[in-house]
Design a protein around this nucleic acid. Structure first.
Lengths: 151, 151
DNA sequence: AAGGCCATGTAACAAGTTACATGATTAA
DNA sequence: TTAATCATGTAACTTGTTACATGGCCTT
């Protein structure tokens, strides 16, 4: 795959709980090739450089998989601002909450659609589980939003 | 406050949904002083440099508060690994899930304790809400863990 | 075949992490 | 009073973001 294809595949697979940017991917690929984990193929249109994973790359991946998972890491600007609610102008918190509700309702719908699609395709049950994580997260957030004081 | 005090206060206030490191804080403080948002006080023991916020600093803070909240950003290495469950050795997913359950049960207990403490202190209801976000998140994650296929 | 559009890749920058050096405080 | 511990701050490095340049594709 090329850098762009990898980014698209990663987003498709990980969207609610992980992210990568194109620049990260493009930066890493030459290093991975150097290390022998991927092998560059011949250039396509637009100077697109495809790579194929090598046997060593697969080994390294499996190795990485077994490493302990490490703590998760959240950055939630909405909750951060709500925590300073006492410093807000009147009505500002309600505004924040309403906007967030709209956005997360959309995200919830997207997660549900993704689960439905994966199930229809008869896909890997672990992938379905990660998509269901998206639903669980969005539902929890929406329910929490309903409890935030908006005064 | 000094850099160390600021880090401690930030962790106390934001722990489940935001984080800062000491290095970030120490790096920013001289710049904020330069910009007139904080004023350095006299050095304490261990060359500790305290800062006080200025009127301009408070204005800048209120300004920042009203900015739109931006999307939240999660990095969850556990869900990431589970998504690749099909590539794991047998039993490995169960191991991951069991470890995670322990850790998140502890985190849930910590969140609950924090809510109880804030309520006892009669604190700011917005702060209580952010602590309750921690509970909601941990509960959702734990319930989701119970649905993950461990075969 | 010309112009707008989208995908590829690069480069400069900002934010986040890790490892280190130093100076008080505490305890043996 | 010496050694261990802990808090302060710094510096080097890694990761993540934003802004940019270029080149095929697709429509008209």
């Amino acid at each position: 795959m090329t850098g762009g294809e990898l980014v698209a595949a990663a987003k498709e697979r990980m969207d609610p709980f992980w992210s990568v940017t194109r620049s990260q991917v493009y930066r890493e690929l030459p290093g991975l090739a150097e290390a022998g984990y991927v092998r560059p193929g011949k250039l396509g249109p637009r100077a697109a450089q495809p790579y194929a994973i090598t046997a060593a790359g697969k080994r390294a991946f499996r190795n990485w998989l077994t490493e302990a998972a490490g703590a998760d890491h959240s950055r939630n600007p909405l909750v951060l601002r709500i925590g300073f609610g006492a410093h807000h102008a009147p009505g500002a918190v309600k505004q924040l909450v309403d906007d967030a509700r709209t956005r997360h309702q959309e995200a919830l719908a997207a997660s549900r659609a993704r689960v439905a699609q994966l199930k229809k395709e008869g896909g890997d049950s672990f992938l379905v589980a990660t998509a269901e994580f998206g639903i669980a997260y969005e539902r929890a957030l929406l329910r929490w939003l309903d409890t935030v004081p908006t005064g």
